[in-house]
Design a protein around this nucleic acid. Structure first.
Lengths: 345, 345
DNA sequence: TTGAAAGCGCTAACAT
DNA sequence: ATGTTAGCGCTTTCAA
């Protein structure tokens, strides 16, 4: 049994192939009568248009590409999942690619997508400041790690971080540490800005906290190390709370505290950024700032498929974050008496 | 500037388009001289063959599809990542789709992939026993949750589970609980078999442990509930160790133990299945049986692209698992004196 | 409104 | 070994 084509339909329905094509594409200029007749034949024959042939002619592939650094990062996994949903609901499929945070691989992937004539590309760029050469002729939207010169969509990292630190201040914390993300990462820098924004409203906290900022990669191990450094300080110097730039960092931070015998949240509060699923299953559950990943993904897909013009992107699109309370935060402990007391480490 | 096509190359190189095509496809019957000349022109013009036109003629799309139930499950995320790597290294791209464990969506996705003429499909089927209607004409390999009648690739769930329980037995545990996966899941059933296999070598343990098998979904919350049930038993009845069917379950189990004041691993050892990245960042780090996800993904891609014939699959392909020691296991506590002792709960 | 026909860019069969 | 040419299945002018 051979694959049935538009010709078979045309023959059976006694019309020209062009007419069948018009019916398929809901072209307005087709009589109701003919439309029905053709539809019936399509139904009867079980005809399905060939996407390949279609896009070859029409230059529309109903395919979008998504390139991320690493799917093992749960934040990106959620992003991809949501993007796929959004694309599917609009009749598109998703080509998924990983750049492993490598500029060369990234460029290669983008070129591949361009040659496949995808209708749009969602890119989470690899870290570092590189001259991104976007394939021309394909709409592209940059997500999360914004890049100057390209339409960008991300959470309001700065505002979100401020939210987190405001919360700690409200609880009464004044010595607040910060595990900042890598300095070559745009979101990391934005979150650090937010951290500073919050402190600027409280000179006392600002003074005490500014020396407590350390840089680490976004992962568990770097953060664990960095936290150990912060927490090894004398009790009256070390932070009573820490803001981390990712959930995974927070988990590393908790581990460091555990290992030093510092109870969380009793003696150390932690607020993190992202609030992926992970945050809800660790002990203690993380108090964290949630990025609206679903909204970001939908907006990215919509931008691509609705063909918004670049001029609409003089400023990147930012989505607000939201603080989700978990079990990793509490008011600061009252200072212990200076007499004997179990001292960790 | 117009897109350059094979014709432009042919003209510039003073050859026929057919010859250019042969050069592109490394067809043997081309003189070295002409090959070089054509290559040079291709280089100079920056010509790139159009994948669409190519696959339209050749019926080869250099695209493979992967359909999984849920990307938020880190096991599937790792699988997708590895599959993408394997496919890319062989010159293919990956269309990614989610079925959300819904049979209808799954069928729909498979049909879409078929109509896109992908060169192969990797499917992790949704749970439950449904008559899977695979699109014909497209090679498909079923991964992880094997399905009768289709070429299948998975870890040796049964052997892996046995590994886990053998380890617990060797540590001296005799009352070993089991958080089994959902009974409509093939891997869950296999792992439960492996659990029983291990016990069958030790009648004492078998007798004590058989009543300690409970069923739960693969996720954190279900397992937390199920574990609470197991751990609420009297101290001399409750398990001294638990085997869980996933890492997420293990984390739920640890949480349940924590909440009941049962220290892990001092009073309760836990071994889990999967050993995704997650297992290494929770406290305590999980002792777990690692599935060789990379091998599974590579094998799946290879099977598809090397066009192995179905008869090679009378039996599914199984990969062995490996036990990775973490911090969640220890020998059983010596039984406490029957006199007063802090009793949790 | 509909039909006829020219391609989209490439590969493969056939011819030389 | 290379050239020629007929499509792949569809969309889209251009006519009617």
């Amino acid at each position: 049994m051979k694959k049935i084509s538009i010709k078979d339909v045309a023959r059976e329905a006694q019309v020209a192939t062009g007419t069948v094509s018009r019916v398929i594409n809901d072209h307005p200029s087709v009589t109701e009568e003919i439309r029905v007749r053709v539809r019936r034949v399509i139904e009867r024959l079980g005809y399905e248009p060939d996407p390949l042939a279609r896009s070859m002619r029409s230059k529309i592939s109903r395919l979008i590409g998504i390139v991320i650094p690493d799917l093992l990062n749960p934040f990106f996994a959620e992003l991809v999942q949501h993007a796929e949903q959004a694309a599917t609901s609009r009749g598109h499929n998703v080509i998924f690619m990983t750049s492993f945070d490598d500029v060369g691989k990234e460029a290669d992937r983008l070129a591949q997508l361009a040659s496949r004539k995808v209708d749009g590309i969602i890119l989470v760029p690899s870290n570092g400041f590189h001259a991104l050469k976007a394939p021309k002729g394909v709409p592209m939207v940059v997500v999360d790690r914004l890049l100057p010169g390209y339409p960008g969509i991300s959470a309001d990292h700065r505002g979100g971080a401020k939210l987190a630190v405001d919360y700690l201040l409200k609880l009464g914390h004044r010595r607040i540490g910060c595990i900042a993300g890598p300095s070559n990462s745009v979101p990391a820098k934005d979150r650090l800005e937010g951290f500073r924004d919050a402190l600027s409203a409280c000179p006392e906290a600002a003074k005490a906290s500014t020396p407590l900022i350390v840089e680490a990669a976004f992962d568990y191990h770097s953060a664990r190390l960095a936290s150990t450094y912060l927490l090894a300080m004398a009790r009256d110097e070390r932070p009573t709370a820490i803001f981390t730039s990712s959930d995974q960092q927070a988990i590393g931070c908790i581990r460091a505290a555990n290992d030093l015998g510092i109870p969380v949240p009793a003696a150390l509060s932690i607020v993190s950024f992202d609030r992926v699923q992970l945050a809800d299953i660790v002990t203690p559950r993380l108090t964290a700032v949630r990025q609206p990943i679903g909204d970001i993904a939908s907006a990215a897909v919509a931008t691509l498929l609705d063909g918004l013009k670049p001029h609409a992107f003089e400023a990147p699109m930012h989505f607000q974050c939201e603080l989700v309370e978990g079990e990793s935060t509490a008011p600061p402990q009252v200072p212990p008496p200076l007499t004997a007391r179990k001292d960790p480490g």
